[in-house]
Design a protein around this nucleic acid. Sequence first.
DNA 1: GACCGAATATGACAGCGGTCATAGTAGCGG
DNA 2: CCGCTACTATGACCGCTGTCATATTCGGTC
Lengths: 198, 198
Amino acid sequence: MAQAQRGPRERMVFSAAQLIRRDGVTATGMREVAAHAGAPRGSLQHYFPGGKEQLVNEAVGWAGRYAGKRIARFLAALDEPSPSGLFAAMARQWTDEYETSGFDSGCPVAAATVDCAATGAATRQAAAAAFATWRAPLAEALTDMGVPVARAASLATLMISTLEGAILMARAERDVRPLTTVVRELRPLLDAAVDPSA
Amino acid sequence: MAQAQRGPRERMVFSAAQLIRRDGVTATGMREVAAHAGAPRGSLQHYFPGGKEQLVNEAVGWAGRYAGKRIARFLAALDEPSPSGLFAAMARQWTDEYETSGFDSGCPVAAATVDCAATGAATRQAAAAAFATWRAPLAEALTDMGVPVARAASLATLMISTLEGAILMARAERDVRPLTTVVRELRPLLDAAVDPSA
DNA sequence: GACCGAATATGACAGCGGTCATAGTAGCGG
DNA sequence: CCGCTACTATGACCGCTGTCATATTCGGTC
């Protein structure tokens, strides 16, 4: 997650996502976001008149778009594309981060879902949209590899679900093995889904 | 999750788990836990001198033991045991709850991980222990079905990861389809893992 | 320079959080 | 009745949070 040095507004959204994925939505304060972004506190109510909810929702949306865009980048980096290779690349992003930077942070969309699904209707919807924004390009990539369209959507759901859960377990255990394990275990299933006649 | 009407201490732990899995750890207050349990506020510092952290950790531990025990019950309810059947039973517990009681609550262990992995060392460890308490009987059940021991542990990790992630997506989208989808997609892989010669 | 909107700076407020301190009650063995 | 322990009750404290209200500064444009 490279820092985009755009305007202060974008920086605050980015910082919010960073803090949310580390501490959760409730434990992340607005003053903290501003400080983390190096932005003036007064800008909060100027750029986000909708308050914390707006900021959180934008952070979640940003995370969804980020995850979606990564799919294309992972795909381009694969020498010979395969569903399992793509899934491995998605997981490797997390193992790399955890091995170099520690297990402090998880997925901001997961954090928003856990903290806001029951009470924050708008944020819950933002999380659902983020998952959709993530899943769509993933399903498309699978079809491009020869997975039947009907199957691709289901497989995308499976891949994201498994990855999210493995991230949770990895953080709890401070060990990347859940991530490497699910990649290994899912490999044959994923590759068996490509229709060779396609 | 039937309510155990034991002493007030147990009720508070149980209520804490309920509230945590709905609103997250940070958003759950101690006064709220006492009120939900119908327990006097003064009992909090008496039964949990370690403060909120102790209460949360016990709630997470309770959840882990609960999940572990459920494995045996699911197993007993299957007419002809199979890995996919067990996984389907695990997922059905969630689809049932979501269809009858709404999508308000998720997994308390996941909530504790999201909210405390970075800052609450003890709680993070409690979450890791809960995952272990959940995974052990699951792996044992798989070996009893004929899955090689080496494979059973990995498969247990895969099943729990996928289930946790599907719970997240289901809550965000307010739709049980992620759960039903991963059950369907994982079925062949799970059943292929049983060694017929065993 | 005057002007005006965007952006920033501060301060205050009301609410709630966990926690501590202290006092009170209930039950029971002596 | 005493004394002791387990439990309950209540109030206060301090820190923090999101939000609002109110200046103040900045950057251009006429």
